[in-house]
Simulated assay, not measured.
Amino acid sequence: MEELTGDVVSLRRRMDPESHVREECRLRVPSMQQLAQIPKDINPRGYSKWPLERFVRAAYEGDVELLKKMLDREDPIDGYHHDFNEHHKPDGFNALHVAATAGQLEAVQMLLDAGADPHVKRCMPEGKDPREGETAREMADKHGWDDIVALLKAAEDKRPRGLYKEFGPNNNAKLWPIDRPEGLDPEQEKRAKAAYRKMMKGLPSKEDRLFYGDLVFGVNFGTDPRGRPIQKKKPVLNGLPAAEE
């Protein structure tokens, strides 16, 4: 990679010996150490940056500080703007399932308060009957978490059952009404997206923009930082300026 970077700069100088390529404009190839530091569990987009895998893992680990941010859908960045009941593939568990299995009582309570459905069963793999999928309460009971079992039993009694997919790759998935896709409140989403737009920087003015060539090659035949045009220098032949075409 380093040899490639050097070759590009050398080639540029051979093509145009009079050019002065600024150090900050040279092609840089990230090292393996730099690539290893890039978080693998964060979406590249700014809005709703956390993926499903990280949401489920926060519930499993009982990371209540991060989970509290994710469950706040008024937050356009750290808020998780998807279905809280979505199954993580290929295991087929959702956030409430893994929190109940791991004995994370506080995480279970937070998910229920945020609207997670205790009736959702595990998504069963191909070849298994979806009706054999267990609920979070049944999983907690299997692992001996009596306090979580009682909490989920009370939630099941209080909350009526919804509609769930009965077959296919996404079996046992919760089916939401058309006006609440993924269980999201449209008005709440409007507020979150409006808050996100306020965080975004606007495009720079013409005076603040540099010509593309200045950014890439260190030369500028377009406009200066104040937007004034820059005249291209006429080539010199045998000590005399070349005639204009």
Rank of each mutant, 00 (worst) to 15 (best):
202 G>P: 09
207 E>T: 10
190 K>I: 11
119 H>P: 03
227 G>P: 14
139 M>L: 11
57 R>L: 03
13 R>H: 11
226 R>D: 12
17 P>G: 06
71 L>F: 01
80 Y>F: 03
75 D>G: 01
230 I>G: 08
151 L>D: 04
61 E>G: 08
77 I>Y: 05
210 L>F: 10
114 A>S: 00
122 R>A: 09
71 L>V: 05
20 H>D: 14
1 M>I: 11
156 E>H: 06
194 A>I: 01
105 L>F: 04
211 F>K: 15
147 D>H: 05
122 R>N: 04
125 P>C: 05
85 N>K: 01
108 V>L: 07
96 L>F: 08
203 L>W: 09
126 E>Y: 07
178 I>D: 15
244 E>P: 14
172 N>H: 08
96 L>P: 10
220 N>A: 07
68 K>H: 05
68 K>E: 12
29 V>E: 13
49 K>H: 13
191 R>D: 02
229 P>L: 02
33 Q>H: 09
211 F>G: 15
30 P>H: 02
58 A>K: 10
227 G>R: 15
120 V>P: 06
119 H>Q: 06
243 A>Y: 08
16 D>S: 15
168 G>K: 11
60 Y>I: 10
98 V>R: 08
106 E>H: 09
75 D>Y: 01
214 D>N: 15
73 R>S: 02
92 G>V: 01
90 P>Q: 00
225 P>R: 14
99 A>E: 04
76 P>L: 00
155 A>S: 03
146 D>R: 13
86 E>Q: 10
39 P>L: 05
187 E>H: 06
139 M>G: 12
74 E>S: 03
55 F>W: 01
52 L>M: 02
98 V>S: 10
219 V>N: 08
136 A>Y: 01
141 D>A: 13
32 M>L: 08
62 G>M: 10
209 R>W: 07
161 R>G: 14
229 P>S: 06
148 I>L: 03
224 D>E: 05
47 Y>F: 09
122 R>V: 14
198 K>D: 01
101 T>L: 07
5 T>E: 12
232 K>W: 05
62 G>A: 08
19 S>W: 09
196 Y>G: 01
174 K>E: 08
93 F>T: 10
189 E>Y: 04
21 V>F: 12
44 P>G: 01
201 K>N: 11
29 V>G: 07
192 A>V: 00
32 M>R: 08
173 A>E: 15
49 K>T: 14
64 V>L: 02
231 Q>Y: 07
30 P>G: 05
245 E>H: 15
189 E>G: 00
171 N>E: 14
146 D>H: 12
79 G>Q: 05
103 G>N: 04
50 W>L: 09
22 R>F: 01
104 Q>C: 06
78 D>E: 10
14 R>M: 14
12 R>T: 15
136 A>M: 03
24 E>A: 12
131 R>G: 13
136 A>K: 04
115 G>A: 07
185 D>T: 00
6 G>H: 07
180 R>K: 13
89 K>S: 11
34 Q>F: 04
151 L>G: 04
28 R>M: 04
23 E>Y: 06
102 A>K: 06
58 A>F: 05
112 L>E: 05
106 E>F: 00
163 L>S: 13
22 R>Q: 13
74 E>N: 03
189 E>L: 00
175 L>H: 00
191 R>L: 01
207 E>C: 06
225 P>T: 11
39 P>E: 04
55 F>C: 00
11 L>D: 12
161 R>Y: 11
81 H>N: 00
